[in-house]
């Protein structure tokens, strides 16, 4: 029975279809990560402002996004927003929206952490040199924060890819869904396909995430000081 199962993987273009499905997941996460990094940097800078209003607002945003499971956020956008505003948002678009909101919150907090870890005298001495606010960030603060930030941002990519597996639950056809289709199609010819297909999906995720998380760990160690 089991050799029948593994054959399903190689039959027709099943493997290509699985990889295509994986690409849907990866594409959504990469798109969300790129937008989140840009927005997160802005959010992180806003969060370091002393203004009580922006402080309260960003805090509420951050806490809400972080405390809600990502699947709940997906439901809120996919089902909730569609009904509330009477618009149709495709599964893929809602995924990008949700993961951008989530990634921005996570990234914003990382940026804030990196920014406040810069000693205050760095700001003071650059101000004393007569640099403007923008120049202080551009030449003094950002280059130092980047080193702390890049490993954490890379780590966010793997978290994003893993979390993106949830989109199958709002009807996006990605690697798990394709796997289900293949299993259904070969229900009679290869009854044990599920074991092999889900095992393959498991390792596909591992193959994608493992190098990225290794890279992040390595950079973090190298740039520690």
């Amino acid at each position: 029975m089991q050799d029948l199962g593994i054959r399903v993987l190689l039959e027709g273009n099943n493997m290509i279809r699985l990889l295509d499905g994986l690409w849907v997941t990866v594409r959504i996460s990469l798109l969300a990560v790129v937008i989140s990094i840009v927005m997160g940097i802005l959010l992180g800078m806003v969060m370091t402002l002393k203004n009580p209003v922006t402080k309260a607002l960003t805090r509420i945003y951050l806490e809400f996004i972080r405390i809600m499971p990502q699947l709940v956020l997906l439901f809120l956008i996919y089902f909730g927003a569609a009904k509330a505003f009477n618009i149709h948002i495709s599964g893929e678009l809602s995924a990008v929206i949700v993961f951008t909101l989530w990634g921005t919150a996570e990234m914003g907090d990382l940026v804030r952490g990196a920014l406040i870890s810069i000693p205050k005298h760095q700001y003071d001495s650059s101000a004393a040199l007569g640099l403007t606010g923008i120049q202080i960030y551009r030449y003094i603060i950002i280059p130092q924060t980047l080193r702390r930030l890049i490993p954490l941002a890379i780590n966010l990519v793997t978290r994003m890819i893993k979390t993106t597996s949830l989109i199958v639950l709002i009807g996006v056809v990605e690697v798990l869904k394709v796997g289900q289709q293949i299993i259904e199609a070969s229900r009679y010819t290869a009854p044990s396909a599920a074991l092999w297909i889900y095992g393959t999906v498991f390792f596909l995720y591992f193959i994608v995430c493992f190098p990225i998380s290794k890279l992040s760990g390595k950079l973090e160690k190298r740039w520690q000081n």
């Binding site: 893993k162 979390t163 999906v201 995720y205």
Partner: peptide, 12 residues
């Protein structure tokens, strides 16, 4: 376990 999502682990 760190590099795979829970959803996929559960499916398996």
């Amino acid at each position: 376990s760190r590099n795979t999502p829970l959803l996929v682990q559960l499916f398996f």
